[in-house]
């Protein structure tokens, strides 16, 4: 149970970062922290005590394997996370070129 709570704490750390940080890059990092806390939860969901890596070896007898599906989900989500982070970085760098700063307090044209 502790591990799940720790994952949730990690999620909250990311959320705190997104809400309070003023630097574009730090916001992106906080979003990544949130993402990875959820990947951890996904992998934990598939975990079975004493389970082996889910590689079917023809030679070995039947054993307990961990659930491979959440791992596949986590992998796919990592790919998506890569694309999102790359997009965020590209936009952040362009914003930096326009404003010469990463501070969101100075980047505020739009009202709400």
């Amino acid at each position: 149970m502790t591990v799940y709570i720790l994952c949730f704490v990690l999620f909250l750390v990311g959320l705190y970062g997104v809400i309070t940080r003023r630097n574009l890059i730090k916001i992106a990092i906080s979003l990544s922290i949130m993402e990875f806390s959820i990947f951890l939860i996904l992998v934990l969901i598939g975990y079975i005590d004493n389970g082996l890596a889910p590689i079917v070896d023809p030679g070995s007898s039947a054993q307990i394997y961990v659930d491979p599906l959440p791992q596949a989900m986590a992998l796919t989500a990592i790919v998506i996370g890569l694309a999102t982070t790359a997009m965020l970085m590209a936009i952040a760098i362009r914003l930096y070129r326009k404003y010469k700063t990463f501070d969101i307090r100075e980047i505020r044209n739009l009202r709400g």
């Binding site: 997104v18 993402e35 999102t84 739009l110």
Partner: peptide
């Protein structure tokens, strides 16, 4: 700026 805002909130939603 709009795209950055959209991405942060959209990323949160995806999470």
């Amino acid at each position: 700026e709009a795209s950055f805002k959209y991405q942060v909130l959209g990323g949160l939603a995806s999470m």
